[in-house]
Design a protein around this nucleic acid. Structure first.
Length: 143
DNA sequence: GCCAACGTTGGC
DNA sequence: GCCAACGTTGGC
Protein backbone atom coordinates (compact mmCIF):
# COMPACT_ATOMS: atom_id res chain seq x y z
CA UNK A 1 0.00 0.00 0.00
CA UNK A 2 1.21 3.47 -0.86
CA UNK A 3 0.84 6.61 1.19
CA UNK A 4 -0.04 10.14 0.08
CA UNK A 5 -0.80 13.61 1.25
CA UNK A 6 -3.57 15.70 -0.28
CA UNK A 7 -4.19 19.38 0.35
CA UNK A 8 -7.41 21.28 0.53
CA UNK A 9 -8.16 24.83 1.48
CA UNK A 10 -10.74 24.51 4.25
CA UNK A 11 -12.62 27.43 2.72
CA UNK A 12 -13.19 25.34 -0.40
CA UNK A 13 -13.48 21.86 1.08
CA UNK A 14 -12.75 21.09 4.70
CA UNK A 15 -12.10 18.00 6.74
CA UNK A 16 -15.48 18.47 8.45
CA UNK A 17 -17.16 18.29 5.05
CA UNK A 18 -15.16 15.18 4.16
CA UNK A 19 -16.31 13.52 7.39
CA UNK A 20 -19.92 14.60 6.86
CA UNK A 21 -19.95 13.27 3.32
CA UNK A 22 -18.06 10.07 4.07
CA UNK A 23 -16.89 9.38 0.53
CA UNK A 24 -16.19 12.35 -1.70
CA UNK A 25 -14.73 12.83 -5.18
CA UNK A 26 -11.33 14.53 -4.96
CA UNK A 27 -11.75 16.87 -7.90
CA UNK A 28 -10.23 20.05 -9.25
CA UNK A 29 -6.60 18.97 -9.55
CA UNK A 30 -5.20 20.91 -12.50
CA UNK A 31 -1.53 20.22 -12.22
CA UNK A 32 0.22 17.57 -14.28
CA UNK A 33 2.38 16.16 -11.50
CA UNK A 34 -0.46 16.10 -9.01
CA UNK A 35 -2.66 14.35 -11.59
CA UNK A 36 0.05 11.77 -12.18
CA UNK A 37 0.01 11.01 -8.48
CA UNK A 38 -3.77 10.67 -8.54
CA UNK A 39 -3.48 8.11 -11.34
CA UNK A 40 -0.91 6.16 -9.34
CA UNK A 41 -3.27 5.77 -6.38
CA UNK A 42 -4.73 2.34 -5.71
CA UNK A 43 -7.89 1.47 -3.83
CA UNK A 44 -7.05 1.17 -0.15
CA UNK A 45 -4.08 3.54 -0.27
CA UNK A 46 -4.15 6.05 2.55
CA UNK A 47 -3.55 9.75 2.52
CA UNK A 48 -3.19 12.55 5.01
CA UNK A 49 -5.77 15.31 4.64
CA UNK A 50 -3.94 18.61 4.97
CA UNK A 51 -5.55 22.01 5.43
CA UNK A 52 -3.61 24.58 3.44
CA UNK A 53 -3.72 28.32 3.99
CA UNK A 54 -6.05 28.21 6.99
CA UNK A 55 -4.81 25.79 9.58
CA UNK A 56 -1.73 24.55 7.75
CA UNK A 57 -1.92 21.19 9.46
CA UNK A 58 -2.66 17.53 8.87
CA UNK A 59 -6.12 17.01 10.27
CA UNK A 60 -7.25 13.58 9.14
CA UNK A 61 -6.66 10.35 7.29
CA UNK A 62 -8.55 9.33 4.16
CA UNK A 63 -8.53 6.19 2.06
CA UNK A 64 -8.74 5.83 -1.71
CA UNK A 65 -12.23 4.41 -2.32
CA UNK A 66 -12.16 4.59 -6.12
CA UNK A 67 -9.17 4.80 -8.43
CA UNK A 68 -8.67 7.53 -11.01
CA UNK A 69 -11.52 8.39 -13.37
CA UNK A 70 -12.26 11.50 -15.46
CA UNK A 71 -12.81 14.59 -13.32
CA UNK A 72 -16.48 15.57 -13.82
CA UNK A 73 -15.67 19.18 -12.94
CA UNK A 74 -13.45 19.59 -15.99
CA UNK A 75 -15.00 21.48 -18.88
CA UNK A 76 -14.01 19.48 -21.93
CA UNK A 77 -14.13 21.43 -25.19
CA UNK A 78 -15.94 19.88 -28.15
CA UNK A 79 -13.78 17.27 -29.80
CA UNK A 80 -11.18 17.35 -27.05
CA UNK A 81 -10.22 14.47 -24.82
CA UNK A 82 -10.64 14.89 -21.07
CA UNK A 83 -7.33 15.76 -19.51
CA UNK A 84 -7.82 15.64 -15.77
CA UNK A 85 -8.81 12.93 -13.37
CA UNK A 86 -10.01 12.52 -9.83
CA UNK A 87 -10.32 9.76 -7.24
CA UNK A 88 -12.87 9.13 -4.51
CA UNK A 89 -11.65 9.58 -0.96
CA UNK A 90 -13.30 8.08 2.09
CA UNK A 91 -12.82 9.58 5.56
CA UNK A 92 -11.05 7.14 7.88
CA UNK A 93 -10.63 9.29 10.95
CA UNK A 94 -9.43 12.55 12.45
CA UNK A 95 -5.84 12.81 13.58
CA UNK A 96 -6.02 13.15 17.38
CA UNK A 97 -3.33 15.83 17.48
CA UNK A 98 -3.20 17.75 14.18
CA UNK A 99 0.35 17.94 12.86
CA UNK A 100 1.15 21.54 12.01
CA UNK A 101 3.39 22.71 9.22
CA UNK A 102 5.57 24.31 11.88
CA UNK A 103 6.01 20.96 13.62
CA UNK A 104 6.82 19.29 10.30
CA UNK A 105 9.40 21.95 9.49
CA UNK A 106 10.91 21.57 12.96
CA UNK A 107 11.47 17.84 12.40
CA UNK A 108 14.78 17.26 10.55
CA UNK A 109 13.69 13.76 9.47
CA UNK A 110 10.91 15.36 7.41
CA UNK A 111 13.09 17.82 5.52
CA UNK A 112 12.72 15.80 2.33
CA UNK A 113 8.93 15.71 2.51
CA UNK A 114 7.41 17.08 -0.71
CA UNK A 115 5.18 19.33 1.38
CA UNK A 116 8.32 21.23 2.38
CA UNK A 117 10.29 20.91 -0.83
CA UNK A 118 7.47 21.69 -3.25
CA UNK A 119 5.04 23.83 -1.37
CA UNK A 120 2.65 24.32 -4.27
CA UNK A 121 2.08 20.66 -5.06
CA UNK A 122 -1.40 19.59 -3.93
CA UNK A 123 -1.12 15.79 -4.24
CA UNK A 124 2.12 14.11 -3.24
CA UNK A 125 3.52 10.74 -2.23
CA UNK A 126 4.66 10.12 1.34
CA UNK A 127 7.27 7.47 2.07
CA UNK A 128 6.42 4.77 4.58
CA UNK A 129 9.06 6.14 6.96
CA UNK A 130 7.55 9.61 6.80
CA UNK A 131 4.05 8.20 7.12
CA UNK A 132 4.93 6.32 10.30
CA UNK A 133 6.65 9.34 11.78
CA UNK A 134 3.77 11.69 10.94
CA UNK A 135 1.28 9.21 12.41
CA UNK A 136 3.30 9.13 15.61
CA UNK A 137 3.44 12.93 15.73
CA UNK A 138 -0.31 13.09 15.29
CA UNK A 139 -1.12 10.44 17.87
CA UNK A 140 -2.60 8.25 15.14
CA UNK A 141 -2.24 4.70 16.37
CA UNK A 142 -4.03 2.83 13.61
CA UNK A 143 -1.10 3.25 11.22
C1' DG B 1 -1.39 42.15 1.65
C1' DC B 2 2.99 40.69 0.07
C1' DC B 3 6.03 37.80 -2.16
C1' DA B 4 8.55 33.54 -3.68
C1' DA B 5 8.00 29.54 -6.36
C1' DC B 6 6.64 27.77 -10.35
C1' DG B 7 3.39 26.32 -14.03
C1' DT B 8 1.26 28.13 -18.28
C1' DT B 9 0.69 31.00 -22.23
C1' DG B 10 1.82 33.33 -26.28
C1' DG B 11 4.94 35.99 -29.31
C1' DC B 12 8.73 35.35 -31.98
C1' DG C 1 11.71 25.69 -29.18
C1' DC C 2 12.90 29.67 -26.33
C1' DC C 3 11.70 32.87 -23.02
C1' DA C 4 9.27 36.87 -21.05
C1' DA C 5 4.91 37.90 -19.11
C1' DC C 6 1.41 36.51 -16.45
C1' DG C 7 -1.50 33.83 -13.17
C1' DT C 8 -1.95 30.83 -9.18
C1' DT C 9 -0.68 28.71 -4.91
C1' DG C 10 0.33 29.00 -0.37
C1' DG C 11 3.31 30.57 3.47
C1' DC C 12 4.23 34.49 6.14
Amino acid sequence: MAYWLVKSEPDAFSWDQQVANGTEPWTGVRNALAAKHLRAMRAGDRAFFYHSNLGKEIVGVVEVAREAYPDPTEEVAQGKAPRWCCVDMRAVGAVPAPVTLAAIKAEPALAELALIRQSRLSVMPVSQEHWVLLCRMGGWAAG
